[in-house]
Write a protein that binds this DNA or RNA. Structure first.
Lengths: 135, 135
DNA sequence: CTGGACCTTGACACGTGTGTCAAGGATAAA
DNA sequence: TTTATCCTTGACACACGTGTCAAGGTCCAG
């Protein structure tokens, strides 16, 4: 498929797809006329990239972990240098820390929302109520 | 405490602490001489901010969710406008998506690392081995 | 009192991800 | 054939988080 279609399917823009390519995240073929030609599996790939970017990982890291994310699983031994493995290991640790942080804070927000709702729900008719701000 | 001490305790820099203040994330008192004076609880606060920033949340969002994160729990009804609550709700959803993305990809990397290790571990003596790159 | 360590504000600069625009080529439909 | 739509590359610009530096104030130890 061409760049516009992939952009629509992944809710991105052609601009970004070209940027990801320049960062080495995707490498589409070229048609005879010079147009980029994307395989179908790149839809998932791009969505994966978007998710990771949104989760705080820079393209430099995403580029390194992408070989681990293939489906079907293809192990690239050429990439598996000791330094590379160490990078991956430390990166999974950072990801774990991020997951913990996000989970903890999300749950705190949920609890907050739960309390606020439980206080406002019982009001069934337009009743005058005054909430004193705690500050 | 003063800015330098807080910076050390949170592994940041005075520069960043002033930046977070300008973004409205923290509001230290001022001593008579103009120096910022930070309460102890701000250590955790700053660590929280750092974690969220590293997880992809912008200061604009962090500022909005910080009131939910107080310990002990202090509900600020003044902040609980309907739009605010909607923002928080949609933000928890984004956080959930981030968590899922990070977890999924972290586990994929772990599996990859597991396979690579299981293939290289059995080598106990320096044996000549050739791994054909899959590319 | 002087030196050093710390604080203040303000400015300039950088990397990264993204938006937008210009100038031109490819292609398909009227 | 013209027109519209898509593609190409390249450039300029922006927001954001961060580093660094300058010029000066505060304070403590020697």
């Amino acid at each position: 498929m061409r760049i516009g279609e992939l952009a629509q399917l992944t809710e991105t823009t052609p601009r970004l797809l070209r940027y990801y390519e320049k960062q080495g995240l995707i490498s589409p073929r070229r048609a005879a006329n010079g147009y980029r030609d994307y395989d179908d599996y790149l839809v998932d790939r791009v969505l994966q990239i978007r998710g990771l970017l949104d989760s705080g990982l820079p393209t430099r890291i995403i580029k390194q972990i992408l070989p681990c994310l293939g489906t079907p699983r293809t192990i690239h031994f050429a990439d598996a240098t000791p330094e590379m493995l160490a990078t991956l290991e430390s990166e999974t640790e950072r990801m774990t820390r991020r997951i913990e942080c996000l989970t903890h804070n999300r749950d705190a927000i949920r609890e907050y929302l739960g309390v606020v709702k439980s206080l406002s729900e019982p009001v069934r008719e337009p009743v005058a109520r005054v909430f004193e701000p705690s500050a």
